[in-house]
Structures are given as structure tokens and as C-alpha cells.
Design a protein around this nucleic acid. Sequence first.
DNA 1: GGAATTAATTTCAAGCTTGAAATTTCATGC
DNA 2: GCATGAAATTTCAAGCTTGAAATTAATTCC
Lengths: 162, 162
Amino acid sequence: MSVAQPDQLPHSDRQRVRVWLRLLKVTKIVESVVRENLRAEFDTTLPRFDVMAALYRFQDGLKMSELSAALRVSNGNVTGIIERLVTDGMVLRVPVEGDKRATLVRLTKKGHDEFSKMAEAHARWVNEVLADLTPEECEQVIGILDVVGRSHKHTAEVSDHD
Amino acid sequence: MSVAQPDQLPHSDRQRVRVWLRLLKVTKIVESVVRENLRAEFDTTLPRFDVMAALYRFQDGLKMSELSAALRVSNGNVTGIIERLVTDGMVLRVPVEGDKRATLVRLTKKGHDEFSKMAEAHARWVNEVLADLTPEECEQVIGILDVVGRSHKHTAEVSDHD
DNA sequence: GGAATTAATTTCAAGCTTGAAATTTCATGC
DNA sequence: GCATGAAATTTCAAGCTTGAAATTAATTCC
């Protein structure tokens, strides 16, 4: 963060770096609010929340590789998080018929119900932090940032139609 | 990510959540590009880069607490990163006169030179990822996101005049 | 000046994260 | 059918991250 920029950079280039720093700043603020509240009110973590959010959206379950792709995190990462969620009875592992390598993971009833509550609170927290943004401004930001990543490899993911 | 929203939410509230998800998405993309390049080209990590960036900006050095506040990370976190940077000769610890509790950390000559190179490359990478954003769009995003965090406690930081 | 509070930092356990290597299973070509 | 390579996942070490507890030093308040 706060990276000094050489003077010889064109103005437009420097501006893009400023955009990046601003994005990072806002993201960190929202993340820390959500993390603190998840811990205080639901005794859980942000990564666990992210995993459950993905599984909530794809109710039929996701393969481990689909899950890590959707969350844009490394492959081995998800293994540990799912492990703990299974221990807590939030997630179920289902063997994929016809492919003994893969496993499907999905929310249990308990996990589904628990996430419903978390999602509602999450929307509240986010709205508090972003309260100063008008609907028009939201529209603009969404529209402008839509193009980013289009030409990037990481765009290959599980139907991320946010 | 991709958090389902109850239907009873007002449109404007749902929009703010969408803004948040979009921010998160773009941030993750840029972060992963920067991380991969830092590792490949400079054999270092994003957290180390962030610390060095803060120290590059504040050439007179920062106290540990100022550093963690500037980076918006927990207090104990910085300790380990600085430790490794000191080992690598990038950072120097200087005792604060008149206060035996605090320490000042600052870049060494080696750290300064190394970061100069990294900063230039960093600007290049960011511009590649955000290439599709026009100067006008950059201006808009910067302006709109400027208000976020103003009323938040985390706004109390070391002169973050991005 | 001594006790209690506050401040700056480190230590620590638990969990997260990556990237690489290892494992197991599937698919393909011969 | 058998080898070879690709695919899905786990394992692992190293480093990052948090929040809480511990440590040490400064400040404040009788």
C-alpha cells in the first residue's frame, strides 16, 4: 500500500495505481468489519463464511476444485477449511459417482440455516460501511469495475454472475 | 463472496452488497497478479512489499505501532515480517530516544534500492490489470470511494493521503 | 515516591494461504 | 491390456494473520 510512483509515469498510469490503492483500502476496511462481526456474533471466520456463501449459492454442491476456483484461492487451501466445517456439521462430503477422485461438498441443513442468518447480518454490516454511497454511485462503480478481469485468466470461474 | 440476499432487502441495500462483492473480486485479481509477480521477479511476498512500501514513504522511519496502523493489520503481525526483513538486510531497527518501549524501523540503503525497482514493476503490473479503465473512470472510482471509511474508526491512521 | 493505569511491543496458539510435491484415479494411445 | 499423461485432490512446509495474553516501560494520581 501507499506505493511511491516514479515521476516519469504518465498521469493515466499513476491514476490506475491510485485506483488500486483505493480499492485495497476500502476492501480492507470492509473485510475487517465483516471479520470482527462474524467472530463476535457468529463465532466464525471470514474464510469459512466465504466457503459457506459459495455452497449456499450452489445448493447442488461443488467439487473441491470448483470451490477453490470460485473463491479464487489455492487448491489445498479449501481442504482444511472444509475439514473444519465438516467437523462442525456445517458441510457434507458426497462422493461423485463415476469418478473416485472427486468429491462434492454441500451445506447440511444446519449449515444452510446458519448461513441464512449470517447472510442477513452480512448485508447489514456492508450497508453500514458503504452507507455513504448513493445508488447512482453504486451503479457507476459496479459498471466501471465490470470490465476488470475480463481478459484475465482468473475470469475462468464458476458462473460468477454478481 | 457471492452472498445470496434476502428478497426483502431494498434495492439500494442490495446494490451496496453488489459493490462490495465487485470490489472484493477486483481486489483479489490484482492481488494475485502482484503476488505472483513479486515472487517470480523479486522472490518476495506481498506482505513484505506492503511493509517496505510504507517505510519507503516514511523515510524517517515508523514506530511498530504506526506501521501496523498504516497497513491496517494487527499489531503482532508486523513483528514477524520485520524480523525477516531485518535478517535479509532490508530493514533496520533504531531505538527511540526517550522511550525504551518503542522502536523505529526504517529501510536500509539496500532495502530502499530494492524497493525502488519493485515499485516501478508494481506500477507496470497494476496498469496491465487495470488497462481497461479510462482516466475518467479512474477519476470517478477514486472520487466515489473516497468517502468510504471517513466515519470509520480505522480512518485514524498515519496520514494516508492517497 | 509508590501504586495503578496506560502505552508499545512481543509472544503465542489457532487458523489461513500459497505453491510445490505426492497420491490416487481416470483417460488415451499403442 | 499397459504405459503414459492428465485430472482431482491432499499433504506439507513456510509464511501470514488475528486476537489474546504477557512483558516492559512510561505516565498519572494520590
